[in-house]
């Protein structure tokens, strides 16, 4: 159908970075659509990545966003989905590749963004778990809160994040301190983050990945001999990481 080809050509003309005059489309009209396309995506990046923007400065961030938009077409009708690959892009981009922590900060901001909009889930009540005989706990798997995320980073992401929040602006950052992070959404629906010990991070990562409690515990111990299962289990229950016990399949 010619109509299909025309729509295809219009999408090409709007999204292609280097525009060439095209007799099929009025230049002024196309300029409006091309501008809408770029500005919309760049504004979304600025919204999702405020700390990266502060770290790089407005002007540099805008230039970087422009390059990202050139390289990365939108893949969803929902603008909130745009920008997932930003961390990988800044890691590979020649003018930002030397800023070691920038990709991890971008990953953190993407996880905060997705977590903020993630589906709701009721936290698992401690009583629900307590009602099961403890010798069966090891074989249990859990549904986790969709907003939860573990970030295993060699950088002090919690400190960098705090450094850029109004309430804790300018607080000290020790760039030699690794801070694996747990991200979750609290009862007020606000995203929170907590630095984890290495064993806790491996444990949470495993649980979010759908392992049994025994397997998660083994992952925690493998990461650190100091791993304390009871403390780690309390931590995930307190922060609502677990939402329900999976029925055995």
């Amino acid at each position: 159908m010619n109509e299909t080809a025309w729509q295809h050509a219009l999408l090409d003309a709007i999204t292609t970075p280097q525009w060439q005059p095209d007799p099929r489309f009025d230049a002024a009209a196309l300029a409006v659509y091309r501008n809408n396309y770029r500005v919309g995506l760049m504004e979304m990046l600025a919204l999702v990545y405020p700390i990266c923007r502060q770290l790089l400065g407005d002007e540099f961030f805008e230039a970087l966003s422009r390059e990202y938009v050139k390289a990365t077409p939108s893949a969803s009708g929902n603008l909130h989905r745009y920008g997932e690959g930003f961390a990988g892009f800044v890691a590979a981009f020649e003018h930002t590749a030397h800023i070691g922590y920038l990709p991890d900060v971008a990953q953190l901001e993407w996880a905060l963004h997705r977590g903020y909009y993630a589906a709701d889930a009721t936290p698992l009540a401690i009583d629900t778990l307590a009602a099961i005989p403890q010798q069966h706990w090891g074989a249990l798997c859990f549904h986790c809160q969709p907003a939860c995320h573990v970030l295993d980073s060699q950088w002090p992401l919690a400190s960098i994040h705090a450094h850029h929040q109004p309430a804790t602006a300018g607080c000290a950052v020790n760039l030699h301190e690794a801070q694996p992070l747990l991200l979750w959404r609290d009862s007020d629906d606000l995203m929170q983050l907590l630095p984890l010990a290495p064993g806790q991070a491996a444990f949470c990562q495993a649980l979010l990945g759908g392992t049994t409690l025994d397997e998660a515990s083994a992952a925690g111990l493998a990461a650190s001999p100091e791993f304390d299962l009871q403390a780690a289990l309390l931590l995930v229950l307190q922060h609502g990481v677990l939402s329900a016990i999976k029925e055995p399949s």
Binding site: N2, E3, L10, L11, T15, Y33, P73, A75, S76
Partner: peptide
């Protein structure tokens, strides 16, 4: 309006479409 093609490429905008009989059925 339209915003994508069959390869799931999107422009997050409200783009005009052909007003033809064939398009109406689609």
């Amino acid at each position: 309006s339209f915003n994508h093609d069959a390869s799931q490429r999107f422009a997050n905008d409200l783009l005009p479409l052909p007003y033809t009989r064939a398009m109406l059925e689609v």
